[in-house]
């Protein structure tokens, strides 16, 4: 078995060469699904280091994006040895950029970090209508709904989406978090969301608190 501490640290350092080296070597040993789960966990712990460094202003958003990319690569490499082993999910969420808005960078960062943290993430993409949110929520019954937007008009679209959840009778069953450039506490209240964030790492912490 590989040294999981080194892997965790390499993920924290965003050291692509070391990470991919370790993972490739690991997969080549034809490991058990159980061991593969441990490797995933070690990567998630590395992501927690990344989150900490972000909070300390040593890493910035560009580093988070790169971290997300590294993690997807890693999971992709591990898939063959993970299959068969039911992955333990900490919770589920439906996310999307709200209607009228096509910006998806913030949503993508948040989504990849949430996946890395063990959430089942259903990403509806961009310019997502309230109806599409409602349909998906009814289908997969997530714990959390995440709405993202960069334009100021996203505030109105978020409000309309929450209204649609209420009308569909599914607002009570989920926690709603909004994220993006224009959101703040006032907007959060107006929209009727449970939480807001302008920072993916912080938003993820909020979500983790909800599913504990």
């Amino acid at each position: 078995m590989i040294d999981l501490k080194i892997l965790t640290q390499a993920v924290g350092d965003l050291d692509e060469k070391v990470i991919l080296g370790i993972i490739n070597d690991f997969v080549a040993t034809n490991p058990s699904g159980e061991d593969a789960q441990k490797v995933v966990l070690a990567c998630q712990q590395g992501m927690a280091i990344v989150g900490d460094l972000f909070e300390k202003n040593e890493y910035y958003v560009g580093d988070l994006i790169f971290a997300g990319e590294l993690l997807s690569q890693t999971i992709e490499l591990l898939k063959p040895v993970l299959s068969g082993e039911a992955t333990q999910k900490v919770g589920s969420m439906v996310i999307g950029t709200v209607e009228g808005d096509l910006h998806d960078i913030g949503k993508n960062i948040f989504g990849s970090m949430a996946e890395a943290a063990g959430f089942e993430v259903y990403d509806l993409g961009i310019d997502v209508s309230p109806r599409a949110f409602v349909d998906k929520i009814k289908e997969v019954k997530p714990d959390i709904v995440g709405m993202s937007g960069v334009l100021t008009l996203a505030i109105d679209a978020m409000r309309n989406t929450v209204k649609a959840l209420e009308e569909a009778g599914i607002r009570e069953g989920v926690k709603v978090i909004i994220g993006g450039n224009p959101v703040n506490e006032d907007a959060c209240k107006q929209i009727g969301a449970d939480a807001f964030t302008t920072n993916a790492a912080e938003g993820l912490k909020t979500c983790q608190g909800w599913v504990k």
């Binding site: 209607e99 009228g100 808005d101 096509l102 910006h103 998806d104 961009i126 310019d127 209508s129 334009l151 008009l153």
Partner: peptide, 9 residues
């Protein structure tokens, strides 16, 4: 976009 704003994906 659907709302008529020109945007940059």
């Amino acid at each position: 976009s659907s709302s008529g704003f020109m945007q940059h994906p």
